[in-house]
Amino acid sequence: MSWGEGIASRFKPGDKVHVAARYPVRGHIRTPFYIRGKTGVVERICGRFHNPEELAFGKCDGPEKVLYRVRFDQKHVWPDYHGGPSDKVEIEIFEHWLEPAK
């Protein structure tokens, strides 16, 4: 298969995206705190999946959301990062947590 083939998505591989800096108090959220508010590049489209934020509360019939893998520079994620200059971290993030990066 070709990743993301036939999936209508807001972003494409290579697009620069910004992770929303939202901090809801409650919920089963799969966007780690350390990546909120950071900017990365879409690496691939993983497919469409039920929203874990709804599944965790028993809502299994909600609309599916596009899931992406997004690549970030470690030096951007951790300002005091002392590994290599090209080190990366890649994370799966759902579409409703992403915005186009300016």
């Binding site: 080190d87 799966e92 759902f94």
Partner: peptide, 15 residues
Amino acid sequence: APEREVRVHDSTADM
């Protein structure tokens, strides 16, 4: 080695 890129994969969802 310092010149190799280290790439961390965080399995946060369905993969």
